[in-house]
Design a protein around this nucleic acid. Structure first.
Lengths: 256, 256
DNA sequence: CGCGATTTGTGCACGTCTTCACAAGCGCCT
DNA sequence: AGGCGCTTGTGAAGACGTGCACAAATCGCG
């Protein structure tokens, strides 16, 4: 320590201060901390201890402190963290100080829901365009936006600076859409289609597959059932569920 | 090795053969392998090498082999894996041999889309009930199912054996719904509401937060921008993107 | 029948993540 | 001013996950 890393200085729009390279596991948790902090701020808290924040975010308090320490030293010993300051810092690191434009491709069942999801707007994003390959869907208005044909992507990209592309098409169309997104310069893609996308180096793809989540739960369900079916060696199998069952990012049994 | 673990014998409905306890990371990948295998089967493949399957699933081949080895020894050296057999095995381990009933609570924007998502039906699940707390939504028919009031949950649970509960309500209502689900014996919950749920031990919760995924992408976007903004020491910063940027479950730059 | 090509299954080493435990620092009270 | 209680920040150890590299096993062919 000692050498205080220059704070991100989110207010100053000057030189970009070269982000600390955070462990990926930490990055994945920062949004959760951010959400919890906003709740705390709304509830009137000005400061919060690592214990309190970690409970609100559903993680271990030591883990939280280590995560936050990667951002710099923004806590006060004996007191805790300044809620407002920490929000500012995390939003800065996550790149949420600018409202990023999102292009959503595929306005079917799921895409329709995403287009209407207000959680995007409230958490730093703006749906800038809705696109679909189906001509019968083009022209439809959803939430104040008109659906355009996916081939207009280049035009859309010049009008708006698209930061992130969201793919909500059937699997068969996803790779083609990904290619089109990459072609217009998109380097971050959120893929809801159940398939693997191949993209050039430097492009990040995150995948969300609803059925996979259910299948993971199904495994644990199956496993619990097979455990209770056994006579078990000493002690009720149910109450003796090993903590190991708790998944990496599966929260389990938060103390009352 | 040597002591071949008795195969799951998915055909036999006899004694439950005590599932091997798989590493959580492996469990999370099995559904992806399963999807790839179904594709391969549809394409007419009878066997597949670890190399081929790993490419289709977007993972390292050594990792795939290690994952599969945890299930038992179902490959043939010099040949590969029998596609049909492997599908059978993975489905057995994941507990997909029975079609599990899912109760979906919250038929708003997102819930509506989930109710109509056919990916559930095609991958081992059956939406058995739609529930909502809003009286004005009760009675509505979606996809052949009538929305019932959430207070009817106990009745629903006696009619059907609910294996998994899906929460697609606003955050404010989520904890209450979770409590209700737990009360009727549900031990696996998929939570789409942006909040932490507290549940008793033995209940598994998985969370999907769409905004969080975007925020993680935003971080990488921000990071890439801050890198290119720097003069950089030797070599284009863009092409020199460290592999470390690739997240744990973020696929990146699959080789063509 | 034996040999070479192929592919699985896995021991081992490495890197990442988690958790404990505690020193260092801060504010408050006397 | 000094001491006490509280909380952060972090070193170190252990658990976990990953990927290489290779021995073991199987098939097909001569």
């Amino acid at each position: 320590m000692s050498q205080h890393r220059h704070p991100g200085a989110p207010g100053r729009a000057g030189a970009v201060p070269a982000l600390p390279d955070l462990p990926e596991a930490t990055v994945a948790r920062l949004p959760e901390y951010l959400r919890a902090l906003h709740n705390l701020a709304d509830a009137g808290h000005e400061t919060i201890s690592s214990e309190g924040l970690s409970a609100a975010a559903g993680v271990n308090s030591a883990k939280l402190r280590k995560d936050l320490s990667h951002l710099g030293s923004y806590g006060t010993r004996g007191v805790g963290y300044d809620v407002a300051l920490l929000i500012e810092q995390i939003e800065y690191v996550l790149g949420l100080t600018q409202r990023r434009a999102v292009a959503l491709v595929g306005v079917g069942n799921l895409g329709h829901a995403l287009a209407g999801y207000d959680g995007f707007a409230s958490r730093g994003f703006r749906i800038a365009a809705l696109l679909d390959a189906d001509p019968s869907r083009v022209g439809e208005e959803i939430n104040g936006l008109v659906v355009r044909h996916v081939d207009e992507l280049p035009a859309v990209a010049t009008e708006e600076s698209i930061a992130i592309g969201v793919i909500a098409t059937p699997a068969a169309a996803a790779q083609r859409v990904a290619d089109q997104l990459v072609a217009v310069g998109v380097t971050s893609i959120l893929n809801f289609a159940p398939c693997v996308l191949s993209v050039p180096e430097g492009v990040d793809v995150r995948k969300v597959d609803l059925a996979i989540e259910l299948q993971i739960l199904s495994f644990h369900e199956h496993r619990k059932a097979s455990l209770t079916a056994l006579p078990a060696t000493g002690g009720s199998a149910l109450t003796a569920l090993p903590g190991g069952l708790a998944a990496t990012d599966t929260q389990e049994a938060i103390g009352t």
